[in-house]
Design a protein around this nucleic acid. Sequence first.
DNA 1: GATGGTCCTTCCAGTATTGGGAAGGTCAAG
DNA 2: CTTGACCTTCCCAATACTGGAAGGACCATC
Lengths: 131, 131
Amino acid sequence: MNIGQAANASGVPAKTIRYYESIGLLRPAPRSGGGYRVYDETDLSVLRFIQRARSMGFAVKDVSNLLKLWSDRERSSADVKAVAMRHIEEIDRKMAEMKSIRSTLVHLTHRCHGDDRPDCPIIDDLARNGS
Amino acid sequence: MNIGQAANASGVPAKTIRYYESIGLLRPAPRSGGGYRVYDETDLSVLRFIQRARSMGFAVKDVSNLLKLWSDRERSSADVKAVAMRHIEEIDRKMAEMKSIRSTLVHLTHRCHGDDRPDCPIIDDLARNGS
DNA sequence: GATGGTCCTTCCAGTATTGGGAAGGTCAAG
DNA sequence: CTTGACCTTCCCAATACTGGAAGGACCATC
């Protein structure tokens, strides 16, 4: 099948498939007589794997690791779990930061009238001198 | 003062100050005889404003808006509040996504032994066929 | 005045992950 | 044979910087 069919069947856009090939996440696809990339069911499985891992927020580098772990029948489940746990920690870190920012913003917006008058605690806070 | 001092006093790296100037977030700084950028207290206030807004996760484009709103004494507090509220919504969107991803990952990692055996629900889920 | 060290300058390139679009080749149908 | 859909490569845009190279400026010291 051509790249367009592979894209439709996997949910990974054709452009992104080419990009993944260019950075070495995917092996170069074999080409047809006319130079078109040709994919089979095995490639589709890989693309779907990648699509799912990316949709879970794994970075492409992590996906690369996960693909290697997937194809390694000898690897321990602990190796895979470690990748997932690191990702969870990363998510927790980001969520904590966002939560803190969010509460600051909510506090400020609650104190801001949001009417025609110019007085605004949000701007005042951003513009404050000192700490 | 030179860019280095401005960087130290504001918390915005010198390189980033130059970058902000290059994209038009900051007005081009006047230059000394030797071609060095020269900053004063007013510039410092602006840099600190930017630093705080960025640390609250506002995109550079939003910061640009906020700077304009800051310098506009006629603007209504509603305009500022709108920027902040949109940002809160964006944070909420991202947090919801992360939360959902997180719960999937936690679920999978709990079911993964994390030992020497290769059997691993995390990989199995990524590699599943169908839905 | 020469030297050294620290600061500054510009420019280029890279990070991560695509999306958009141009210019042109391939293929299947009518 | 033509049309249209699909494919190819290549370059540029976006976000928000960060690093480094090559070279100029400035200040203190020998």
